[in-house]
C-alpha cells in the first residue's frame, strides 16, 4: 500500500482518522503473508513424495513383492481415512470448513490411495474378472460418499470423472455385441445422458439446498459433456448433422438463459465458443457443397470468419453489459 495515497485521501476527508491510523499501523507492521508459498511447497512435497514412492515401488517390485505393496497402500489409505474421521467437523448439508489446513490433503491422499488399491487388485489379481464396471463402481461410491461427508470439491471432481469412467465401462462391453458402426454413437448417447444427468443433479443440488456450493462443479462438467457430445454427434452423424445442429442450438439457448440468470461470465464464454465451433462447421460444410472449383467459396469462408467474429465480439460486449446491469 502506498501511504501517500491514504494521506491524500485523509486530507480530502474521504477516510476517517481512525481508518488512516489503522492503515499506517498496518504499513509499519509490514506483515508479509507467505500463505500461498507454503501451501505450494506443501502441495509440491505431497506430489514429489507420492511420485517418488511410486517409481521406487515400480523399480523394486521384484524384491518387495505385491502383497507388501498392497499392504502398504492399504495402510496409508486406512490411516488417512482414520485421521479424517477423527478430525472432521460435524456433517451438515451446508458448507463445512476443513478443521485445519492439512485435512484436505490427507483426504485427497486417502481417496487417491483407495483408487490405486482397487486398480492394483484388479490389475494384479483380476479381482473383478471381466466385470470392469465393478472395478470403477466401488471407488465411485466411496468418492461420492467422501465428497459429501467431508465436503471436498476436489474429491467431488474425482467422483464425477469416475462416474463417467464407470458409465463408459458399462457401455463399452455392449460394443462387442453391436457392430462397429455403433461404437462411437453409443459413446455419444452416453455422453449426452451423462451431461443431462449432471445438469439435473446440479439443479437438485441448488433447489433442494443440499451442498449448494457443489452446484458449479456439477453444472461445469454437465455443460461441457452435453455440448461436446452434441458437437461429436454433428461430426459423426454427417447425414443428419443439421438436426444435431438444431439440438446444439437448443441446448446453447437453454444454457444461455441459465448463465444470464446466474450472471456467470464463465458459462457465457464457453457456450459462445461451442456455438461458434458448431456454426462454423455448418457454414464450412455448406460452402464445401456449393464448391464450384474456383476460389469463390474460399473467399466466402474468410469473409464468414471476419463477419461472424465481429458479430460475436459485439454480442459478447452486449452480454457483458447485460450481466453487469442486472
Amino acid at each position: 500500500m502506498s501511504i501517500t495515497v491514504f494521506e491524500q485521501l485523509h486530507a480530502e476527508g474521504l477516510i476517517s482518522a481512525d481508518a488512516y491510523a489503522k492503515i499506517k499501523l498496518n504499513k509499519e507492521k509490514q506483515l508479509l503473508s507467505v500463505h500461498w508459498e507454503i501451501k505450494t511447497l506443501l502441495y509440491l512435497g505431497v506430489f514429489l513424495l507420492s511420485a517418488g514412492l511410486g517409481i521406487l515401488v515400480y523399480k523394486n517390485i521384484d524384491t518387495i513383492g505385491h502383497q507388501v505393496i498392497l499392504l502398504f497402500i492399504a495402510l496409508v489409505c486406512a490411516g488417512s481415512f482414520f485421521y479424517c474421521f477423527k478430525n472432521k467437523l460435524p456433517f451438515s448439508t451446508g458448507k463445512v470448513a476443513a478443521p485445519n489446513s492439512f485435512f484436505d490433503y490427507i483426504l485427497l491422499l486417502a481417496c487417491c490411495t483407495f483408487i490405486s488399491f482397487i486398480a492394483y487388485l484388479q490389475y494384479q489379481y483380476n479381482l473383478f474378472g471381466n466385470r470392469y464396471g465393478l472395478a470403477s463402481f466401488f471407488p465411485m461410491v466411496l468418492l461420492f460418499f467422501s465428497a459429501y461427508y467431508f465436503d471436498h470439491l476436489g474429491v467431488l471432481s474425482l467422483a464425477i470423472a469416475n462416474l463417467a469412467t464407470w458409465l463408459g465401462f458399462t457401455v463399452t462391453p455392449l460394443q462387442i455385441l453391436a457392430s462397429n458402426d455403433f461404437n462411437s454413437s453409443r459413446i455419444i448417447f452416453t455422453g449426452l445422458a451423462l451431461g443431462v444427468l449432471l445438469m439435473f443433479i446440479a439443479w437438485v443440488t441448488s433447489s433442494r439446498n443440499i451442498k449448494k456450493h457443489f452446484e458449479f462443479t456439477y453444472a461445469n462438467f454437465g455443460t461441457h459433456t452435453v455440448l461436446v457430445s452434441c458437437l461429436a454427434a454433428m461430426f459423426h452423424f454427417s447425414a443428419v448433422y443439421l438436426v444435431w445442429f438444431l439440438v446444439l442450438l437448443g441446448m446453447i439457448y437453454f444454457f444461455y438463459r441459465k448463465a444470464l440468470q446466474e450472471k456467470s461470465f464463465y458459462f457465457i464464454l464457453i457456450i459462445t465458443l461451442y456455438a461458434y465451433i458448431g456454426t462454423s462447421y455448418v457454414v464450412l460444410n455448406l460452402l464445401e457443397q456449393v464448391g464450384t472449383g474456383d476460389l469463390a467459396p474460399l473467399y466466402l469462408g474468410f469473409l464468414y470468419f471476419i463477419i461472424s467474429g465481429i458479430g460475436l465480439v459485439l454480442s459478447l460486449v452486449r452480454t457483458n453489459k447485460k450481466i453487469k446491469a442486472a
Binding site: S101, D104, L108, L153, G154, F216, N220, Y266
Partner: peptide, 10 residues
C-alpha cells in the same frame, strides 16, 4: 488448497 480444490473454481 482448501476444499475447493480443482473443479474449475470454487
Amino acid at each position: 488448497g482448501g476444499g475447493s480444490f480443482g473443479g474449475g473454481g470454487a
